[in-house]
Design a protein around this nucleic acid. Structure first.
Length: 429
RNA sequence: GUGGGUGUAGCUCAGCUGGCAGAGCACCGGGUUGUGAUCCCGGGUGUCGCGGGUUCAAGUCCCGUCACUCACCCCA
């Protein structure tokens, strides 16, 4: 490098990606569709900062979690504050709720959000360092019917996309009443096993539930007789879990009991769930969530129970690809970027054309025109590529007659329309 | 952090035992000076990831390096 003036060629940083047209149209349509069930259920949009005080995540998600202990983008700002790019959305939303006193208003407070999250991990299919989630949180009420609503909103969102290979996994993680006793029992069981490596043995002490989530067949074999949390729930948690399942049953939502399901974040208690897609390879979770009744207190707030989920945009898009075939694409239709395409021939016509384009856009039509000095043939090609159903051709000859040629690009039919009735004609076609 | 795979045009990729840098799609122009999608003709748009080595000669062989990717781990 010394002595050279060679320019570095930049690329998107490791684990990040760019979204651009035409794919970005699909991207927006998917996100929109995912959130409609929640919006209809009264969830309102929130926007929290992309970075927060590091301690918010440490206390909220738990120091022992993988995410906090090794995956956070943490830096010191110029005011000597420790700042972290949010690795998930819930802690920030709960902080926002506390800061604005939402617990004093009508409850539950129902909120949704969408945006990038950041985790420092080795990238892989469906796993990025900057990734997009959409999420909902329902705060202030510990009614199991609300758990069921939240779960249903997610399942309905997947249904709306047309995904059929999404499976809902459900369990209860208990609460401080019953979980400690169970954890002790589990640790006792695990300590009696010839676990294969140091990491796993350390996990027995630190985060024993996570051991149950191991995917190695030899470990799974050892775990066969392990005590299961859902067999050791206290009466309150048992009643809550039963009620959630009853509501889901009434709603006609299918789930699979997953007593070894473990969430990555410590704040969850009672209801926990995850949606998995079978066509994705290693990263099969397309969404997940649960109830987090202790989170608010953990970050210094008032008692504020809550339940919510987050869905991973990238994995959902992969799932749509996995279920799509050439004949039958799965997912929302992408709105055309253009309805009407205007082609002007000559300087005088172009002057008129830009005005027509503007007027049609004011009528809420999607309108584009041919720019640069392409010939008529090239411009018509542009019209075709734009996806427009109608092309307008305007040359000096037409200008002299006060008309525009209106061509239907599907049928190829073309007719003259007087300039003054053009807008009317196109708006009410 | 640990392993495997892959780096050639905007995209998907071919390029054999080393011998002129290629195809399809996309894009641009023309066939038609006022008509697209079809058809025909033309155009290559390139740091063969990068650096070194072997050789008369390297996209091809060797070494190094970087990037991407898949998997472990973990999760959305």
């Amino acid at each position: 490098m010394a002595g050279t003036t060679e320019q570095q060629r930049f690329a998107a940083p490791k684990g990040t990606y760019d979204v651009l047209p035409p794919d970005s149209g699909r991207w927006l349509a998917v996100r929109e569709l995912l959130l409609w069930p929640a919006r209809r259920a009264g969830y309102g949009y929130t926007e929290a900062p992309i970075f927060e005080d590091t301690a918010l995540f440490q206390r909220g998600m738990g120091e022992a979690t993988e995410v906090v202990s090794k995956e956070m983008y943490t830096f010191t700002d110029k005011g000597d504050r420790s700042i972290t790019l949010r690795p998930e959305g819930t802690a920030g939303v709960v902080r926002l709720a506390i800061e604005h006193g939402l617990q004093n208003g009508q409850l539950p407070a129902k909120l949704w959000y969408a945006g990038p999250m950041f985790r420092y991990e080795r990238p892989q299919a469906g796993r990025y360092r900057q990734f997009q989630q959409v999420g909902v949180e329902a705060l202030g009420v510990d009614d199991p019917a609300l758990d069921a609503e939240v779960v249903a909103l997610g399942s309905r969102a997947f249904g709306a996309l047309g995904l059929s290979k999404v499976e809902l996994l459900l369990t209860s993680l208990g609460d401080p009443q019953c979980r400690p006793a169970y954890v002790a029992r589990l640790q006792e069981f695990l300590q009696g096993l010839p676990l294969p490596d140091e990491d796993t043995r350390r996990r027995v002490a630190l985060n024993p539930l996570r051991v149950l989530d191991d995917k190695r067949p030899e470990v799974l074999e050892m775990l066969v007789g392990a005590p299961v949390l859902t067999d050791h729930l206290c009466d309150d948690c048992r009643a809550h879990y039963d009620a959630v399942r009853e509501y889901l049953h009434e709603l006609g939502i299918a789930w699979k009991e997953a007593p070894t399901l473990v969430r990555g974040l410590d704040y969850y208690r009672r209801t926990a769930f995850e949606w998995q897609h079978s066509g994705l390879g290693a990263q099969s979770a397309v969404g997940g969530g649960g109830r987090y009744d202790g989170l608010s207190e953990a970050i210094g707030g008032p008692p504020l129970p809550g339940v919510g989920w987050a869905l991973g945009m990238e994995r959902i898009l992969l799932a749509l690809d996995a279920e799509s075939t050439d004949e039958r694409p799965v997912g929302p239709p992408v709105p055309p970027r253009c309805d009407v395409y205007v082609v002007a021939l000559g300087a005088a016509a172009k002057k008129k054309a830009v005005v027509i384009v503007d007027a049609l856009r004011a009528e809420r039509l999607n309108v584009d025109m041919s720019y640069g000095d392409r010939g008529l043939k090239g411009s018509m090609k542009g019209a075709d590529r734009s996806g427009a159903h109608t092309a307008l051709v305007l040359g000096d000859r037409d200008l002299a007659e006060g008309v525009v040629q209106v061509k239907d690009l599907k049928s190829g039919e073309q007719r003259s329309v007087p300039l003054e009735s053009l807008v009317e004609e196109l708006v009410h076609r």
